[in-house]
Simulated scan of single mutants.
Amino acid sequence: MTARQTPLYETHVKYGGKIVEFGGWLLPVRYTGILDEHKAVREKAGLFDVSHMGEVLVTGPDALVFLQKLVTNDVSRLADTQVQYTPMCYPDGGTVDDLLIYKRNHDEYLLVINAANIEKDWRWLTENSAGFDVELTNLSDETAELALQGPLAEAILRNLTDTPVEQLGYYWFIPEARVAGKTVMLSRTGYTGEDGFEIYCCPEEAAYLWEAVMEAGRPYGLMPAGLGCRDTLRFEAALPLYGHELSAAVTPIEAGIDKFVSLDKGEFNGRATLAEQKAHGPKRKIAGFVLTGRGIPRADYPVISEGRRIGTVTTGSYAPTLDKNIGLALVEAGYAQPGQQFDVEIRGKNVPAQVIAKPFYRRKGE
């Protein structure tokens, strides 16, 4: 299967992006360098192309009850123009995907899903829609998305719109805003651990908007940012990545995102398993750790205690903001408490590590 290009592919090439394949898409892993881009987002701002993400519109009288059955969070708590993060589970509690739900009104919701899961999620949503008065529309190919992230994101955006973006709350959106003269959907969301905005537009206008945002951001130190720093940023904030901290074999409770599982909203896929895990504690948990020896942990490295494998690294990296080599690992629950010690096997050598609290990084004021 040929890897796909986003509407910004030529723009990335023009800006010197190093292109790699990710989830079936050709995307920039970096421009100037991952560390530079990471620092820019933490201290100033970075601009990401996230047009590879999927979008599915759910409309109809049963839109709410349908979503309540499919996802673990309580969608009924959403006000119009509010955004909600939620896992979506299989009946056995394993995770289909984690996604954002944008509530437009009582019978219209937009789901933003992970790029590598678009086809799988679309099948799952359509199979589960039987018996509900809903209509599903896959808008993935008709939607481009830019993410402007960092502490100066609001100041940059104010130069491009008359919309009072300073009044837009975190995890709220404006269905129709004018940015650089174009009509877009604008949300105050992101995946970096920083403040920021996501701009949804039609693919034909993506390159124009990218250039407009870059131009407005130059005085503020805005940099184009690639997948490499997107991963180190989300990882420092301990935000899960599907296929690593979450999967069909890992439940939201095991992943430590219990607060997005609402057991009191009624029946939903996976509820019995998740209720059992919440009541008695899961047998495995995602733990954060720092290496106390030399080395960098990577996904799939074994986690060892007293000669026995007790788990697996799900994400590991050098953390630029902390200047430490840290990781997330799915381990036996008894080893997941801060202060616990174990080893990570790195190229045949056991390197000592200690469990530390998550998230590893919080932005100021959080």
Score class of each variant (00 low, 15 high):
45 A>F: 01
45 A>V: 00
48 F>C: 01
48 F>H: 09
50 V>E: 12
50 V>Q: 12
52 H>Q: 13
53 M>S: 07
56 V>I: 12
57 L>R: 14
58 V>K: 04
61 P>A: 14
64 L>C: 14
65 V>Q: 14
65 V>D: 15
65 V>R: 15
68 Q>M: 12
70 L>C: 01
73 N>R: 08
74 D>T: 03
76 S>G: 11
76 S>D: 02
82 Q>L: 04
85 Y>K: 08
89 C>D: 05
89 C>E: 10
90 Y>S: 09
91 P>D: 13
94 G>V: 02
96 V>N: 11
98 D>L: 03
98 D>E: 11
101 I>G: 08
102 Y>I: 03
103 K>T: 01
103 K>M: 05
104 R>I: 15
105 N>C: 13
105 N>L: 08
108 E>S: 07
110 L>Y: 04
110 L>G: 00
111 L>G: 01
117 N>T: 04
122 W>K: 10
122 W>M: 15
124 W>A: 00
126 T>D: 13
126 T>W: 14
128 N>G: 02
131 G>L: 10
131 G>C: 06
133 D>P: 07
134 V>Y: 10
136 L>G: 08
138 N>M: 05
141 D>N: 15
142 E>A: 11
142 E>L: 10
143 T>W: 06
144 A>R: 07
144 A>Y: 01
145 E>L: 11
146 L>T: 04
147 A>F: 04
148 L>K: 00
149 Q>C: 00
149 Q>H: 01
150 G>N: 04
154 E>R: 13
155 A>Q: 14
157 L>W: 06
157 L>G: 03
157 L>R: 05
158 R>I: 10
158 R>Q: 15
159 N>W: 08
164 P>F: 08
164 P>Y: 05
165 V>N: 08
167 Q>H: 11
